[in-house]
Write a protein that binds this DNA or RNA. Structure first.
Lengths: 112, 112
DNA sequence: AGCAATGGTCTGGTTTTCCTGACCAGGTAA
DNA sequence: TTACCTGGTCAGGAAAACCAGACCATTGCT
């Protein structure tokens, strides 16, 4: 126990290592799991996503999408049409998040 | 299409029904999934939880625990010792959240 | 007397999150 | 000409989340 008082109550746990804590740093916000879930359902255009997230502002949605893209979870494709169309899709890494959103959905269906 | 312009882009989706959105209302914060995960690991005392969540204040931890208790996910037991001991444990409903935290943990282990 | 231990509460202030509403491009349709 | 489409950007401010540090009770040890 070295220079450690109160040994019996200490917990040997490193949050810098904990995969739960670290994953939550990436998707721990208010919107991100929902965005990933929606894109996974092929709701993949900016306007459609907004419709599905009542109350979110354009600014915030843009910001969240940029962060997800930066973290390599989604990719963004622009189609040179008129008016221009933008589609978001899950990357492999992003698709692997669907296990989490599926667990969330299952819980909701069972308990709400 | 009734009185609906721009029909082709509308999405038929009700967020008040979406189990993902509704579940996120309960555990969508910064700390709650981690708290549930830790209690699931038998890290169940106030002081221990604090150690595992660097940066969280006593006030915030108290608040989150109270909300989880209010939502029926955890229960609180006080032992009349000196100094008094308090232990938190998962209810059945709370235990069923471990599927979600497990998915989060798995993702973290695979991708970080 | 003075300190340690646990599990908090409370005040006051900072930081993060989030929203509203205006604005933009560039083509198209009335 | 004027309005509309998409997918944004930007300024400004409100609200929510969050933190540090002081304080409290009780009992036992020194």
């Amino acid at each position: 126990m070295e220079n450690k008082k109160n040994f019996h109550a200490t917990v040997h746990y490193d949050p810098a290592i904990c995969p739960v804590a670290r994953t939550l740093k990436i998707i721990g916000g208010k919107w991100k799991p929902l965005i990933l879930h929606l894109i996974g359902q092929d709701i993949n255009r900016f306007g459609q996503l907004r419709q599905c997230m009542p109350g979110i502002s354009k600014h915030m949605l843009t910001e969240q999408l940029r962060e997800l893209e930066h973290d390599g979870l989604i990719s963004r494709s622009i189609y040179a049409e008129v008016p221009p169309r933008v589609e978001y899709s899950l990357t492999g890494k992003g698709g692997s998040m669907l296990g989490i959103t599926a667990a969330i959905m299952e819980w909701g269906m069972a308990h709400l």
